[in-house]
Structure formats: C-alpha cells, structure tokens
Write a protein that binds this DNA or RNA. Sequence first.
DNA 1: GATGAATGAGTGTTCATTCAT
DNA 2: CATGAATGAACACTCATTCAT
Lengths: 218, 218, 218, 218
Amino acid sequence: MPKVGMQPIRRQQLIEATLLAVDQVGLGDASIALIARLAGVSNGIISHYFRDKNGLIAATMGYIMSMLNEGVAARRQALTDDSPRAHLKVIIEGNFDASQVNGPAMKTWLAFWASSMHQPDLHRLQRINDHRLYSNLCCQFRRVLPLYHARKAARGLAALIDGLWLRGALSGDAFDTDQAIRIAYEYMDLQLAKQQTLGTIDQASEQPRTAIAKQAGA
Amino acid sequence: MPKVGMQPIRRQQLIEATLLAVDQVGLGDASIALIARLAGVSNGIISHYFRDKNGLIAATMGYIMSMLNEGVAARRQALTDDSPRAHLKVIIEGNFDASQVNGPAMKTWLAFWASSMHQPDLHRLQRINDHRLYSNLCCQFRRVLPLYHARKAARGLAALIDGLWLRGALSGDAFDTDQAIRIAYEYMDLQLAKQQTLGTIDQASEQPRTAIAKQAGA
Amino acid sequence: MPKVGMQPIRRQQLIEATLLAVDQVGLGDASIALIARLAGVSNGIISHYFRDKNGLIAATMGYIMSMLNEGVAARRQALTDDSPRAHLKVIIEGNFDASQVNGPAMKTWLAFWASSMHQPDLHRLQRINDHRLYSNLCCQFRRVLPLYHARKAARGLAALIDGLWLRGALSGDAFDTDQAIRIAYEYMDLQLAKQQTLGTIDQASEQPRTAIAKQAGA
Amino acid sequence: MPKVGMQPIRRQQLIEATLLAVDQVGLGDASIALIARLAGVSNGIISHYFRDKNGLIAATMGYIMSMLNEGVAARRQALTDDSPRAHLKVIIEGNFDASQVNGPAMKTWLAFWASSMHQPDLHRLQRINDHRLYSNLCCQFRRVLPLYHARKAARGLAALIDGLWLRGALSGDAFDTDQAIRIAYEYMDLQLAKQQTLGTIDQASEQPRTAIAKQAGA
DNA sequence: GATGAATGAGTGTTCATTCAT
DNA sequence: CATGAATGAACACTCATTCAT
C-alpha cells in the first residue's frame, strides 16, 4: 500500500540509522545492510531515497551541520544583548551544543573529516562549514577590532573551538563541555581586551606591509 | 632475490608506501594490493613483516608519532635557552614540523583519529600521544604558573595547536605554518603573562574550592 | 531474475552442487567458486542463503543424514511384520540405501568425519547420528535379549554396518550392497540366536559382576 | 655446519610434527609453516626431505601403517600357539594397538581416508592396507573353513574391526579398547564355530554357482 | 644442510548496487 | 512504495613453493 509523504520521514529515519551505525561500528564498517537493519527497512530502499551510499553519507553530514547551525541560531534569537561578546558566546556555546558532543555526532564528524580529504563533494561541505565558523567569529570581532586583529582573533578562536572539540572527542571520556567553554571564553576575552590597546591606531597602519601581502593571498 | 636482514628495510619501505597510498586514495581505499604495488613488492609480504593490515596501519601511525617526537626532541637539544618560554616554543614548532604538515601525514592523522574511535589498540596509541602533548606543555607552564592555571593553559594551548593543525589540514590549501605558529605563540605569551598578576597569590588560594574538587577528580 | 520464495529451491540447488563438487574434487578443494559454478549461480549467493561455507557444509550433511533417516523410515512404514528381526533388517537395509552408497554421498561422509574431529558443530551432528543408529538397534535387540547382551549386539551391529560401509566406500569399486547386507544379516541372526541360550536366565544374573561395573560407567 | 646422516632423524622429526599438527588443527589446516614450527625447523626444509606437502603426507601415512604392521608382527612373534584362533586374536589386538587408537593417529587416518578418495597415490596405499587386513584374516579362516565361508568371515571381521575403530574414533571419548576387542573376539568365535557344522561339506558344493561367478569378479 | 625472504595464485567473505516482483 | 534475490568485483589473508644466501 503506497503511502504519500513518506519521503521526509524515511529520509530522517535512514539518517538516524546511519548515525547509529557509525556510532556502533564506524563509517568504514557501516554497511548499507547494517544501516537498513537498524532502520528496520530493506536494503534496496536506500538507493530509492538517496542516490547511493555517498548520498546518504552526505545527507547525514548535512543533517549534523544543520543541527549545529540551528543550535547557534536558536541561541542568537534568544539573545537580548547585542554586544559582540554576547554574540561570540553564542557561537562558542552553539559549537559545544549537545547535538555536537554526543558519541554518534563526534564519530561521524571525525569520519567525515577523514573522508573529506578524498571526496570533493564532502570537501566542499567541509569548507563551507569551516568558513562559516570563521566568518561568524570574524564578523563579531570586527565590530571592536581592526581587520588584521579581528581576522587573527577569529582564526585563533575557531582553531581553539575545533581543537577543544577534537581533544574532547578523542579522549574517549564524556565531553567536559563546561571546561571547554571556559577556556574558549577566556581566549575570547583576551582577544576582545586588545580593543583597549589598539583603540587609537588607525586602520591604514594596523598591520605591517608584509602581513598585508600575506593576507591578500589568503 | 631473498636476502637476510631485510626486515628493517622492508618495514620502512612498506610504511612509506602506506603513507603514499593514504595520501592518494585515503585509508579506506588503501588496499593491501595498492600498498604493495606502490612499494614494488608482492601482496603477501605484508603479512610476513606485519601480522596483517592493522599491524601495518599501527606501525605507520607509530612512525608518524615518532617523527613528531623526534622533531620536538631535536629542537630541544638545539636549545641554548632553558626558559619555559623557549621550551614551549620548541613544542609548538615541533608540532608544526614539516613531517606533520605534509599531505600524507595530515591525511593519515585524520584517518587514524577516525579509526581510533573503534579500534582499541589505535585508541591507546592516540591517548598516549594526546597526553604527551598536554603533559609536556603543562610541565613548562607549571614552572611559572600555579597548578590550576598551568593546567588550564596547557589544555588551552594543546587544543589550540591541534585546532590550528586540524583547520590547516582540512583547508585543502598548503599549510600556513607561520600563521599557525604566530597564533600559538600569542596564546602562549598571554598565558605566561598571568605570571605577573598571579605572582603574589599563594598556592593554597590559587583556585576556588569548587575548582579544587573538580581537579581532584580529573 | 530475482523472485520471491526462492529460498528452498536455491538451498536444495546449492546442496546438490556441493555434493557434486565434493564428488569431483573432495571437500578440501570444493571452493565456493566451484560450487557456485556447478549450481549455475554467483559466488555471493552462498552467504545469502547459508551464513558461510561452514553453513553450507553443515546443511549438506544434514541433508544426507535426513536422506538416511527417511530411507529407514520409509522401509519401516512399509513393514507388515512387527518382529524385532524385521525391524533390524529395515535398519540394515536403510543404511545401505542407494542414497548412502553413491559416490557423492560416500565422499561427503568421509570428509565430514574427518572435519568433525575439529569442528564442534559438525561433531555434534556426528554424535547424534551415531547414537541414533546404536539406539535404534539396541531398542530392537532389547525386545528379545537382556540389556547387557542387547547393548553388546547393538554396538557390534552398528560397528559392522559402518565398517562394511567404510570398506565399501574406500574400495573404489562399485558398492556391493548385497554382500554387505548378507554379512550384516548373518551377524544379526547370530545375535538374535542368543535368545534361545539366554532365555531362562533371569535379568539379575545376566552379566558377570565385573561387566556390571563396567557398564555402569558407560 | 652441515651434518651427515641427518636424513632419517629429520624425516622422523617432520613426520611426528605432522601427526601433531593434524591432531591439533586437522589435515586441512596443517600448513607447512605450522608443521615446520612444531618440528622446530624452517619452512623450506620440508621440500628438501620430502618433495612437497603430498610427499610428507604420504610418508606420514606410511609411518602409521608400518606402526600397525609392526604391532601385528610383534604380537605374532611372541606367539607360542600356532592355531588360527591365536593368529586371529593377534590381528585383532594389533589393530587396536595403542599406536592406532591415539588422537593423532585416529585423526590422521580419517583425514587420510577422505583424501584417498581423490588422490591416486594415497588410494593405492589405502587399498594395499585394506587388502592386507582382509587377506591376513582370510588366510587364517581358510585353515578351518571352506573358501567361501572363510572369505565371508574375513570380510565380516575386517569390517567389524574397522567399524569398531571408526565409531571409537568418532565418539570423541577415550577409545574403549577392551570393549572393541571383546566384540571382535565374539565375532571371530562365532565364525570359527561354523567349522563344526560345515566340516563334512566338500569344497565343490560349498557355495551356489551364482556366488562363484560373483567371487570371480572380485 | 638449512634458512627465511619472497612470490602470487587462490581462498572465503563482504558489499554496494540492480531490478523483477 | 518497498522488498529481497542476485550479482560480481574487491577485499584481506593464507599458503605451498622457490631460491639466494
């Protein structure tokens, strides 16, 4: 008995089964058969909703990324304070949202990164996501810091967030969200504090000529 | 043309072929056949020198890690200045050594991390390596900072180093070593600067009671 | 050309191909590829219907054993005479049924015995089958002989049947069913003849004390 | 340092390692590497002393068979009574000699039988051995029975001996030598007892014509 | 005589994919 | 829509054999 409107339900069902499978055995051993079994459907249906296994993987990653973005967006909407510091806190917290620091998500992210080095479509997804974090951070730092310093601060904070996440994921223990957020906040504040020292310097002289050349190439 | 004493030569040969294969197609698609072809030997020889494919992978990771440690050790030996700052710089630079930021090494690290989530033996390797970076950093920070702050600084710098490395690896572009080192140096100096503010505080009061409790459980 | 309800058909098809393969090259050289080719199907299908090669082997042995049991059962049903002698004849004849003395079956039995020495699951199958022959014989002998003699007669006749089968199988020539059956009949009759001599002996004294002790441990 | 006269020592060493290997993992999994390891020698040496693996297997079977023959021969030499019955007892006992009912020997015999169905050279060995038992028995029965009955008795006793051995080997329990010998003795005596009944029948009429034709073809 | 490095064909098994039902 | 039968290539791994030392 054919049903209508099954598509979004089935897709979500299969994506969640994929996360479960990756959590249990890793992406390399997450076969179509296993995913289908976990989802309680037949093997063949996967190619019906997603072109092939790669399509399912890409959709699964897209789902995790959308969770991340929604986590940030939700916090931003709840914001009453429009200060850069408040916005930066939102970004930091969003990146350590529960949707990002659970077993399935962490294992999937790691597997995704490894795969993205050899699959152009996944690499594209990856670059977009990486750039979003950087540009969100940069945008806020820019409100109080000269461009050169804002960029450097954004690069540093983005790396720190990813590094804290990475080391937490690899530790094997439960993720210590509070500690990670505390360390990231501190870095944020140290960068924002430059505002005082750099305040009087005009934009034209904000960075050495060599650095300008370098940035241009970025 | 069988010869005696081939073991170390063949092992190195096969490890390098593995790195090459991972660089070309990723760990998932780095088949025994491909690795053997790249090494210019027969398939069967891999089980002769390494028990199986996992043995080869583990040996390859061990090789990359030993390169990392050698990179740090060599810089440390060349050191004339025994200050904590000099030692921290050595650790930072060692982690962005050429042996760690080339294509094969970066791809292998990423694949290794993903695998370590599901293979206990690789996870052990991984934890040892993670802990070494942290404890090396902590050890140096401890020389000028109270324990609580030294630990936090070490955790932060370790995460920043890994995060810079990660984002550099995932970018797809050539690794910008100078920029990464510059950002890490800055973090190091910001942490070392706490020495001034915290100098007069005696150890007993260096952290709130709650924080003490937390640390004790770590 | 996928169809539903193929399972029993394919399973039988593959079991028969296995018997054919064992007949042609022996169990050791009966590769999945050969069996699949003989069955006219692809390699992969074997793991679809049987878990793995062992599953196929076990199923094949189960099939031969069921043929054996059916051979006996069919003869028993056709029986008009309910005497022990008639029943014993049925068992003897069933064990030399055409389904058991053809090339494929004989070679498979021999290979199965060899394998059963090292594969616990096959050994279980083997013991069950061995015991069935013994207990069927014993049950009939018991109707006319005291327990001790019935057991001994059953053990002897079971061994004689298996031995006749074995020597026939190993001879390389066509199996001389008539001769085997004649020899087994004679043994049966010699044992049944004890009924006359032992008839008046009451059960308590039916065996020497030392023998009693021995039997108790069996 | 090359040694002279190593050949018989090495050959025996390797044959015993083969028996050990077959006992441990079965003939199918008894690889050259395992056998060499058990013997404490290198892989390559096997092709030096035996042409190839088949050569080693054949030599191992030859060894077991020679043990069997020696067991019978030794008992025969110790014989003071030259009666057919005494000789038959010797043959029976020899076939259940300790050299034939231990784990390695039993497993090797079973594997050998299975292999003999597909390897002509092993089949030749097998037929010679089978025939030796039959002809030894027949020879003794012939001294007291007419040809037809001697042949039948020999065939029956040979089968009974092999069957008792087979069922004992397959049982998985320790071999009950006494029980086997007792059952075989009984059969022997039942056959020898025909001497009384058949004594007066002259040779010409000892079997029906049809049976003669059959025997001629054997 | 003895070693063990090296080969490469062959094994059982897994798996994404296709497609008739 | 959904199934699961069927494929066949790819995989890691084993192994008897060869041969330079």
